[in-house]
Amino acid sequence: MINYLKSIFSGIWALMQGMYITMLNFCRKKVTEPYPENRGKHQPFERFRGELTMPHNENNEHKCTGCGICQMNCPNHTIKVITKNITTEDGKPKRVLDQYLYDLGSCIFCGLCTQVCPQKAIAWSNHFEHAVFDRSTLVKQLNHPGSKKVENPVVAKPAAPAAAAKPANDAPKDNNENKN
């Protein structure tokens, strides 16, 4: 009899706690974004994968070496890295990025490209308004016209950064694989 009453009152207490929690939710700020009204003011959260971008600094320089790791890792062949060979001022041949083509229409936003990029040259932006009238406009060139690779990267490298960067960054990747 005591246990019967005790179970009932503890049950009522538990139910009231549940109702208290739902009432807190009721009074909380709503998460719904009234989208077209707050256009421009609305800021998606940090990790939101809107579209792939290649950040350029104020001198129109990017960090891409044209190594093509992102292209190899892309499951949908969304990324196409086109490189060209130029001769530097001191007479050495060098491979640099010509066009970085990104097809938004076939991207699945998996994020493998940004994970594997050794230079952190590409990043996700929060821009999410992708609607266009023609499918061909979805293929975007990410490097700005006339841009070039930023010289003197943070880690000092030997004379040929493009050649040095690849093995230097393949090594830690292999280490990770071994660990896993």
Binding site: T22, N25, F26, R28, K29, K30, V31, T32, P34
Partner: peptide, 13 residues
């Protein structure tokens, strides 16, 4: 509306 508010949504608006 009430259901939406309990789920932190706005409901039909």
């Amino acid at each position: 509306r009430i259901c939406a508010f309990f789920q932190c949504r706005l409901g039909p608006n």
